[in-house]
């Protein structure tokens, strides 16, 4: 049995005045200031029965959006079988950071490492904030919106092998695919299906701006 969104909100607002409702397609969702996030999550875990941390992730709301990054926590209650989404916006658009909840749920450890790896959101007080999916020393955060799907040319993780094979982590040739029509645009020329990421390919030079 899951609580109605309004109930969750009013119950939480009694304790955390800053909490606001967040539009959601399904489960109850709340916005919380980053400073209150850990206190709120601790409260939810200890007193509201949300004992299961399903997921921690981040969203990049576009290059020129502000606040640009949000951190999303999904909680589940093994008692009431309900979900709750907690979202907090990062204060800085250039060096986003968020408090770590690895001390509350050990499950958060890897999720936070992944979010740091792919989006570059630093989690303060994280026990061991290293990259997890990309290799150590990879210079970019691939899920940021300004990073092209094809990738950016960097040396292979093993320099010795890179030297022997002369291979690099070169941008993938996007020639022709994936075909995606620009969304929402009804202008026929604009809506034409095309490779969405046309930054460059093997034949076209890398633009200087990136």
């Amino acid at each position: 049995m899951s609580l109605a969104p309004a109930e969750v909100l009013s119950a939480l607002q009694g304790k955390f005045a800053q909490v606001t409702a967040r539009p959601s397609g399904d489960h109850p969702a709340v916005n919380v200031p980053m400073a209150d996030a850990v206190a709120l999550l601790r409260h939810l875990r200890d007193e509201r029965g949300f004992d299961f941390l399903v997921d921690v992730t981040g969203i990049d709301w576009d290059v020129d959006a502000s606040p640009r990054f949000s951190v999303v926590w999904h909680l589940f209650s093994t008692r009431d079988h309900g979900y709750l989404r907690v979202v907090a916006a990062c204060a800085s658009d250039t060096e986003p950071s968020a408090p770590s909840v690895a001390a509350l749920w050990p499950a958060a450890d890897w999720h936070e490492r992944e979010t740091y790896d792919l989006l570059g959101i630093r989690f303060e007080n994280h026990p061991d904030l290293r990259r997890i999916l990309m290799w150590e020393g990879y210079p970019y955060h691939p899920l940021r919106k300004d990073f092209p799907l094809a990738g950016i040319d960097v040396p292979l993780p093993d320099l010795e092998v890179g030297e022997v094979t002369r291979a690099t982590a070169a941008p993938a040739p996007m020639v022709g695919g994936p075909f995606v029509a620009s969304t929402g645009e009804m202008n026929l020329t604009e809506a034409e299906p095309r490779a969405k990421d046309e930054s460059w390919d093997e034949r076209k030079e890398k633009p200087d701006t990136l």
Binding site: L133, M134, W135, L143, L149, F179, V180, K196, D197
Partner: peptide, 17 residues
């Protein structure tokens, strides 16, 4: 140590229908 099969599915998803 993970990531040896990280193929970028989430980024790919943002680029297709």
């Amino acid at each position: 140590i993970l990531g040896y099969l990280h193929r970028g599915d989430e980024k790919i998803a943002e680029n297709m229908t």
